[in-house]
Design a protein around this nucleic acid. Structure first.
Lengths: 197, 197, 197, 197
DNA sequence: CAGTAATCGAGACGGTACGTCCCGTCTTTAT
DNA sequence: ATAAAGACGGGACGTACCGTCTCGATTACTG
């Protein structure tokens, strides 16, 4: 640890944190305006007042840039409710708002499809998607530990059950969801996993 | 019928069905090999021995061409099982095979994301996605009519519940699914909707 | 002659003279509006309410169509002056008006350049250019016969001497000519060929 | 001089002179092989190992590229003769060789015709044509100054008189010229302008 | 405090795909 | 057989984007 801290700054001019921020914010703003297909490295450079070299020095491809920018978005926040069903409804509701209210919702699906043909993208995207799901996994794990969900339940499985139908409806069907719909999804999906005390 | 018979063929040389077939098959083969991003209008034209004008005469953009080609893929087939759960497991299994075994699985999600920024694409893609889901909708509706699922159940809702988690796992998580997993998804999702007789 | 007259009309529907006229007039109007580069066979067909097949049945290429249309333009007319110099000034003036007042003036030069790489065009264009020059050749020949120009003078040579400088100024230099200029050209070019009586 | 020295090189990577040379040479070689109509931007790019973007960055259209390439051709060279007539014969002979021996001869006429409908082309072509004529203009001006041609003679006028008939014969009539013919043209055209002393 | 080295903005580079336009041919039904 | 209509293969055009590269100018540390 000390070793790392001591690691000398490399020679030469250090990379500018300002440029990096500006680049990521420009990328994010393009993503938010028109989704992944609206992002152009030239446009990002122009908006951020940066050069393309500065961008590619940090991220090897456009996909990696977009992933880095995406990480600036607000993650799902731990709900304050008590019961697991209410917590899930709350967090899936947050998820649905993110998916349907801005073009940002489509970014991850588009990149996810590319994962299958692109190992390097796969490697970069995995941790991002994992971390994005962590809040809901945490809730579910806590519910299992707390005796609200049957022991031995796979948290990932529950997450898919709750998020999958909502994402499918928003992205694939291009239909809106409301809180009642989400409540219905969560209750139906989890009914057989709940320990009703 | 008379109405159709009266609809005269328009003047002029009719569009060649052979060309159209060759174009769509070329597109489909590129899609199957490398997914949406592997499709190039020039490559399609070259493989199909067609000119780009012939392609653009039929479909206004590359997206529309891809949608038309995608319609040639085998739709999900009605399972021969009797019980609704078995039918759903069977058809979701077919869906999962399609999604995870070829690059074709990612085509619809990529286009679906674009729907949100592209009204014309939206219009073309809607019917395709709807028709793709029809087999599973049919099963569910039959089960409702047949008294296996609670009256008043929304078939679309059930379809999302069964397909969403599988698609999320395959596309977003890049994890495989097997029949046991699918059985688990279907049983968990539908348990509270079943009428156990 | 009788033989030709007796030649039976070929079987089938005879070619429509109306179509032919409409096609040529459409071509000519496009030529007059924007010169050779503005002529498109599709546009001609649309304007003439004809089909492209009808056009290509009569003329093997676009160039030949343009040549045929060009033949509808008014040829240079025999001047009424008496003296050869005045006659030449008059007819070269007509030529200059044609060259500089409409895009038609550039049609023949463009086609003439193509002659050099295109034997079939060469064959079609030769007679047209020859016939267009005939009025001036006639004047010069008459002047030689009439003793105004030195015996043994080559009429083609004189025509080049009078027309060439004017065409070069209009087409290549994109400069206007007026009657005074033309008078100067003709007098200078012919001075040594005149027999001053 | 200071002014020029002060003109800083602009920011960014400078345009590659090598690329530019390769592009122009490729264009020129295509021009020389098949004339204007044989030049294709894609072919130029392929031969020059350049991208189309690199071409279009320098010249806004194919026409402008061709003009730039044409400037690489050898200009007419000042003859070493003494007498103006001999000088003119010599330089018109050079001109005739250029016009009739390669497809390059037709390039300027084709572009010149387009001048009349295309103001931007007009602007680019004017200086080229002017500079191409400069050698003959120089000769004529020297002859006026030197007392061989009448004072007040317009050099452009004399140039048209000498070149026009030759160009018309080669391009429009598609007939060859030889030195005797050129001598005849020059002598006839200039006879009345000469100061025979 | 001069030298060295990595970074910066700017923007050109090769490559590749897009969608449009035109040519000359071909294939329909109607005359 | 010819007409209008219009599709066909081929191929060029000019634009846009990607990821790389070269400039002169900056900004730190290093000797």
């Amino acid at each position: 640890m000390t070793k790392e801290a001591v690691t000398k700054r490399p020679r030469g001019r250090p990379r500018s944190q300002d440029s990096e921020n500006a680049i990521l914010e420009a990328t994010l703003s393009l993503l938010a305006d028109g989704g992944y297909s609206a992002v152009t490295v030239d446009k990002v450079a122009a908006i951020a007042n940066a050069s393309k070299a500065t961008i590619y020095r940090r991220w090897p491809t456009k996909e990696n840039l977009v992933i880095a920018a995406f990480e600036l978005t607000q993650p799902l926040s731990r709900p304050r409710k008590k019961k697991i069903v209410d917590q899930l409804v709350e967090i899936v509701w947050q998820f649905s708002q993110f998916m349907q209210n801005t073009p940002l919702g489509g970014v991850l699906p588009v990149l996810a499809v590319e994962r299958h043909h692109n190992p390097e993208l796969d490697e970069a995207l995995g941790p991002l998607i994992k971390s994005r799901r962590q809040p809901i996994i945490d809730i579910i794990e806590a519910a299992i530990t707390g005796g609200e969900l049957k022991p031995g339940t796979d948290p990932e499985f529950v997450a898919d059950l709750c998020l999958g139908p909502v994402q499918m409806r928003i992205i694939m069907m291009h239909l809106p969801v409301n809180k009642k719909h989400i409540k219905h999804v969560v209750e139906t999906a989890c009914s057989s996993l709940l320990i009703t005390g």
